Amino acid sequence: MSRHTPSRPVDMEKLFPELLPYRRESVRLHPRPGSPTFKDSSVGGPLLWPASEPWPVCREEHYDTDTASRLEPAVAMVPIVQVRRVDAPGIPFPEGTDLLQVLWCPYAHGVFCYPLPRVHWRDSGAIGDVLPTPAPAAGLPEDWYPACCAVYPEHVTEYPSRDLPDEVYDAIRGRFDALLTETGLLYSYHLAEAPGIKLGGYPSWTQEPAWPDCKGCGSRMEHLLTVSSWEFDGESWLTWLPEEDRADENETGGRRWKNDAHNPTRLCLGDAGGVYLFECRICPERPIGHWFDCS
């Protein structure tokens, strides 16, 4: 079943023409429990991994995520996202590639206790024999890697909230406040950037923005992927919950959504935070940066 985010209940660019220069497009992946194959786009599913290439193992210093104190041994990385180019319209894949694969080590790394990601762009037609995706190692923190989910990609338009320049926000703040009074719609929750796991658009920051600069050329990197703990929260569901996942609250014990729509991946990154991946599209090797935050 495909997923469709409801149209915004107001005409954003008519009410706030100042936002037009900051408009961006993203692809919401809408993961839901399923049984994708290695040929499919997925979250937490098997990867189309070449048999000629060893499965990546994290040998960096990393720690138990509960205490961030116990040093853990080397561990095989876990699949996070696999996306075919055909399922991600508008996302700029490198020339000659049609498959994006993201893995990470689900143990805590560095001062901020982040999972350590790795990104691969591939030509699926050149892979040949496929290496079976290994099961996650025993003892991994299960809420730091996603349950196996099929995806239902959807193209959406976004506007920035935390990334909106201060001078622009100050110029239209009064209209944001008036809209909240008249409709109950809070710009940052209901009308700006999409929550959940997505490609492109703006990061769904929990804290203040932390855009990395490329170590090679010094330019600010572009947002590639947000991996959020939840697909929406107690505020944002009102406008971002897909039509197909909405339910009568009397049928769901007061909830407004069906089944696993809120947290289909079973992730809980810190205090329901997110991991953000970035890339430099200027440097030929497309170096990667990342950030992790939570409430």
Rank of each mutant, 00 (worst) to 15 (best):
S2K: 14
E13M: 09
E18R: 05
L19C: 08
R23L: 12
L29F: 04
P31G: 04
V43Q: 07
G44D: 05
W49L: 01
W49F: 03
P50M: 03
E53K: 07
E53W: 01
C58H: 06
E60Q: 14
E61T: 11
T65R: 13
D66V: 06
S69R: 12
R70H: 13
V78G: 04
V83M: 15
V83C: 13
V86E: 15
G90E: 12
P92A: 08
G96Y: 15
L99P: 01
L99A: 00
Q101S: 10
L103I: 01
W104G: 06
W104I: 04
C113Y: 12
C113S: 14
H120S: 08
H120T: 05
W121S: 08
W121T: 06
I127P: 00
P132G: 05
L140S: 08
C149P: 04
P153H: 01
H155E: 02
T157V: 15
Y159T: 02
P160R: 00
P160C: 00
P165N: 06
D166G: 10
D166F: 07
D170A: 12
D170K: 11
D170W: 08
A171Q: 14
F176T: 05
D177G: 11
D177E: 13
E182C: 08
L185F: 11
Y189W: 12
A192F: 02
E193D: 07
A194N: 03
P195H: 00
L199Q: 01
G201N: 00
G201P: 05
Y202M: 02
P203R: 00
P203G: 01
T206L: 07
P212K: 06
P212N: 11
P212C: 09
D213F: 14
G216P: 03
G218E: 13
S219V: 15
H223N: 15
S228V: 05
G234S: 11
P242Y: 04
D245L: 08
D248M: 04
D248T: 10
E249L: 13
R255C: 11
R256C: 07
N263E: 09
P264S: 06
R266Y: 05
L269G: 10
Y276P: 00
I282F: 12
W291I: 02
F292S: 13
F292P: 10
D293N: 14
D293L: 10
C294F: 13
S295E: 15
